[in-house]
Structures are given as C-alpha cells and as structure tokens.
C-alpha cells in the first residue's frame, strides 16, 4: 500500500516534469477497477509509455496485419483489456469515454484519434 502510494507520487511528479500533463481519470469507471490498477507496471517503463505508446501500437499494427504476428505485449486489444475500468455495476466502460484512461489524457493533450471508429473500446470476449 505504502509502496504503491510512493509510486503514484513519483508518477504524478514525473507527469508534471515529463509532459506537463496532470491528468485525473475522472470518468464513470470506478477507481481501481482496471487490471492495470492492480499492477505496478505497464508493458514498458511508464515514462517510455507516456511518450511513445503510439509508436508501439502503430508498429504492432503493421506487423500484426501484414505478418500475422500475434504474440505480443503491444496489441491495441491488450492495452484496452488491461486499462479498461468498470462502472459501479461491474460493466466495462469504454476506454475512450470522457474521463477514462485513454480519453482523459488525449483530451488534455489535444490528441484526437480515429482508432475507435473501428476498434472496440472495451473487451468483447473475442
């Protein structure tokens, strides 16, 4: 508990330093309900993810679609599966809904993506 708190503090500090992003995930999803909330790290170091996650995903998208490589930590489906939060009833809340993990930061940073016009925004089971 204490370790986690220390880490969050560090993360908040790092956010401020790295990109001037002070993001609060204040959507409909319940705090702590994402798989990611119960883990200490992402698929790459947090500071790297913050700056480079789109490069990881876009690289992944090419090798998955053209080369059929599916054994990976960087699939878009994987990001969503781990980062999606649940509402009070336990149903997943779309990652691109206002205030949710992907959207909160993109809104803040003014990044707009079209990925979710096609890609599911919460796990569908297959």
């Amino acid at each position: 508990m204490k370790g986690k708190f220390g880490l969050s503090l560090l993360m908040a500090l790092c956010l401020g330093l790295c990109g001037g992003l002070g993001v609060v995930y204040a959507g409909e999803g319940v705090e702590g309900s994402a798989k990611a909330d119960r883990l200490d790290a992402c698929v790459a170091p947090t500071a790297f993810m913050r700056r480079n996650h789109f490069e990881l995903i876009e690289h992944q998208r090419h090798i998955t679609v053209h080369e059929g490589i599916r054994k990976t930590d960087n699939s878009l489906a994987g990001c969503i599966d781990c980062h999606v939060r649940r509402d009070a009833q336990g149903s997943p809340v779309p990652v691109n809904a206002p205030g949710e993990f992907c959207a909160a930061c993109h809104e803040y940073a003014g990044a707009s993506l079209d990925c979710f016009t096609c890609h599911a925004t919460k796990p569908t089971g297959n």
């Binding site: 200490d40 790290a41 170091p45 599916r70 930590d73 994987g78």
Partner: peptide, 12 residues
C-alpha cells in the same frame, strides 16, 4: 516492479 506480459493461446 515487473513489466507486464500478455498471455495468449498459441499466437504466432
């Protein structure tokens, strides 16, 4: 601190 890996059935 462990970086996460995603398990999958029998992916290429």
């Amino acid at each position: 601190v462990f970086l996460q890996s995603v398990a999958n059935a029998a992916p290429r």
